[in-house]
Design a protein around this nucleic acid. Sequence first.
DNA 1: TATAAAACATAACATTTGTTAAGTTTTTAA
DNA 2: TTAAAAACTTAACAAATGTTATGTTTTATA
Lengths: 230, 230
Amino acid sequence: MKNFYSQFDFQSELLFEALTTDEKNAVYASMESLTIKKGSLLFYEEGVPTGIFQIKKGKVKKFKRGFSGTEQIFYIYTPGDVFGYHALFGEERYQDSCEALEDLEVNFIAKDIFFQLLQVIPALQQTFIKNIGHEFGVLANIIAVLAQKNLNARLAINLLILENRFEKHSKAGGIDLTREDLANIIGTSAESLGRSLKQFKDEGIIEVDKRVIYIKNKEQLLQLLSNKES
Amino acid sequence: MKNFYSQFDFQSELLFEALTTDEKNAVYASMESLTIKKGSLLFYEEGVPTGIFQIKKGKVKKFKRGFSGTEQIFYIYTPGDVFGYHALFGEERYQDSCEALEDLEVNFIAKDIFFQLLQVIPALQQTFIKNIGHEFGVLANIIAVLAQKNLNARLAINLLILENRFEKHSKAGGIDLTREDLANIIGTSAESLGRSLKQFKDEGIIEVDKRVIYIKNKEQLLQLLSNKES
DNA sequence: TATAAAACATAACATTTGTTAAGTTTTTAA
DNA sequence: TTAAAAACTTAACAAATGTTATGTTTTATA
């Protein structure tokens, strides 16, 4: 099997890493810095694309609303991640919404400037398209998890994924999300999520301080997956 | 809300439709015809990409294997659909597998020839990338359904989607899939699927002949969705 | 066409998950 | 700093789904 985490990671923080120093400088020179308040939308479903974002500080949730209006979160972006480019490559409207989970500092590249960059740096388009292909596979993996795994297994997988993604950006580690948001990632209600979290606490797999979840026994979480859990 | 069906449809049968007559002729001249036996793989996860396919006759399932080895089907292709191009746009390996559900007639464009076509027809790359963006939104919608809807609602949605997709290609309509495959689409066991099908039969929503499912009351299915079903 | 294998239908029981409710803690904003 | 709002925890009960088992029908193949 491929690396566990890369199966669930968009890896969009690597998009500019393959460039030469000169190219990278050109990209970063095109950016403007923005500050965005917690709870604000960076963009929303059906909105007209304005440009692409890279997070400097803070976290962002990407979600879609189902028929019943429930928010389905399918990704959490962290510092370094680049996003908002799908809609620029041909689509007219955004397919999903992005909201700041905390006060945010981002770099922004306006649409027109981004297209100029694509002209100047031929490698760039290829890199983005390649990443969209990778992201397609990530969504397919998320589908498989949601369709095949029971609640505890879904929680275990997502705790591993989120801790791995968050620990790069905070010394203490730990998963700091509202129960509502976490429930909207793993596909359950906040109450059922609470029950599973309690089980994990009682078994010593996790510890919780305020609302922050710390993984204490990674092996036991991994074991939950290899079991024939449905 | 956007058109219900387009939210769940890759619409890859339209990829060549935007081209001029000359361009279209060039594309079709590049194709070779293949016959593929029921049960064979057109390509498989981690395999090296060989080219792209368009179905002339028959159906194909696209799936991924989860950790436990269970097959998660996330799309059924029908005649006219084009697929297998994600991996060509930058990725080295296929991200998923495609298997013939019946004896198949397909048109095939080999990788090198496809790249030549992209050179000759500039509009083509844009069209493909645009469609990949659309497909991304489709997967996000599938995620929302799997995460938020109960079994009966998931079945209802997928019956509507599949009937709509199949009716274009057979006079009689009807959904002809093994219970196992249908269960692997909606994320349940064949037995639980059977129970829901029986409920739908008892309520007169569907009729079943051999294994083929016919929708008798589309309104009632649509109503299942608008309800506050979880 | 006969036979074996695969697929299907159904029911009973076990387990998981959803829902409602009530009390507590934490965060927000005046 | 404090009052109000939001978020969280937990438990009991209801409903949905998973699992096991058995018999039947359909399909594939010799």
